[in-house]
Design a protein around this nucleic acid. Sequence first.
DNA 1: CGATGTTTTGATCTTTTTCAACCAAAGTGG
DNA 2: CCACTTTGGTTGAAAAAGATCAAAACATCG
Lengths: 246, 246
Amino acid sequence: MSVSNCGLADRLNKWVSLTPAERDALARLEDRPRTIRRGAVLMEEQARSDELFVVQQGMLMCYVLLDDGSRQVVRFLFPGDLFALSALVYARSPDTVVAVSNAVVCPFDRGQIAKLATEHPRLFSLILVLNQIERVITTDRLAGLGRTSARVRVATLLLSLRGQMRHAGMEVGTSFTPGLTQEEMGDAIGLTAVHVNRMLRQLEDDALIKREGGRVHLLDEAQLAREAGYIDRFEGLDLSWLPPGR
Amino acid sequence: MSVSNCGLADRLNKWVSLTPAERDALARLEDRPRTIRRGAVLMEEQARSDELFVVQQGMLMCYVLLDDGSRQVVRFLFPGDLFALSALVYARSPDTVVAVSNAVVCPFDRGQIAKLATEHPRLFSLILVLNQIERVITTDRLAGLGRTSARVRVATLLLSLRGQMRHAGMEVGTSFTPGLTQEEMGDAIGLTAVHVNRMLRQLEDDALIKREGGRVHLLDEAQLAREAGYIDRFEGLDLSWLPPGR
DNA sequence: CGATGTTTTGATCTTTTTCAACCAAAGTGG
DNA sequence: CCACTTTGGTTGAAAAAGATCAAAACATCG
């Protein structure tokens, strides 16, 4: 059981050393794995739902549709990510979740969270920590959309996708496969597919990246990160305040 | 003590009926009120800090500065809001916090949160709930920045500022005082001050709003909300899963 | 009253979108 | 296995949205 299935436990165990009871509790969140195929919609915006999920394998994305038909991708999900936590607050999902690649997700009941809250204060605290990290990442993206150029947004997207994959335990070196169409990229960073294409070409002409097939090579990572002002929000955490594990 | 000081307890008490012990615990978070003057910087981006805060009175904003000197306001704070929760994860603040009006805030230690986690599971759960609401609001803003026009963004800003004020227990009817310069508004919605001005004028010419002094009247709220696709994220919560209070 | 900061307006410039066409790769059905 | 459709990528030209620059009008506050 405890072999790396790339779920939540492995993610958390990098930060604290989980007790056997805690491992058990986490395992219970992931005891109903569900396989979904690329392109499948896991949850529709506005649909009733009271389940939360852990991603175990693959890549998914969350988006909202605006009145004029345009789409905004609000988040990409990778193994170890929790999602649909909004079910803790709203009866209807605020966004649509779709699988970008084949994937495995594990639904679990809201009641499990209440149980964690009373029986495993440290685990529950870690969920708050995850939430907090996400919030900071989302505000980084907010600043990117509000105040940076198309070129910088594309560079940032590449860096952050790779960063997320790395943190999810996928093997990624200086080259990786985003697995997104240029349209999807554009919807994530507020650009048209056409303009994403031009910016990718520009980055390639400037010898910052190289593309072949679906693969992207980051040729000058330092320069990219400098231009993008990219900060890895999974680095340098300080969790010394956490209550003891049970 | 329990008279409405517009702090966290009053906010939470609208959703659940707090036990005496819970009220006590919350009161302890707010036992060191600090008064700050309009314009004062409460916390600098990148500064070390391990305190969290509750807003008791007034209005503050959080922003980040980008490399090119531009600014993005990421959040406005009102009475009852928690902030600097990022201190639970990072040793350095990701953003700058400044008072937009004279204000009263209450700092408290990270350890208090750990204590809540073990002793008051329901309160701790409610903090997660607050966090979740914020996250959804932030993604709404993300979609706004990525995919909506300047006019819509200005309309949304007005509606959401008023919404936040109302939820903080301030008296606001169809007219209210944003208390922001047009530059600050622009920095919140990714526009220049000049363009904010033009959009405000346009909304006024279309008889959707009226301005006098610092006051804004929402003349046709229904139409504004329709154009903006505005959703009040403090409405319609479902907190039935919460563990019992202690 | 002078000094400073904010709002307003016009003119011009830049960035990004829109529209349209074409191409390559990958499926699909016969 | 081959036409055929579909999907995604690429490029150019024109249009639109918003930014930038500059100046003047207003406010506010010592």
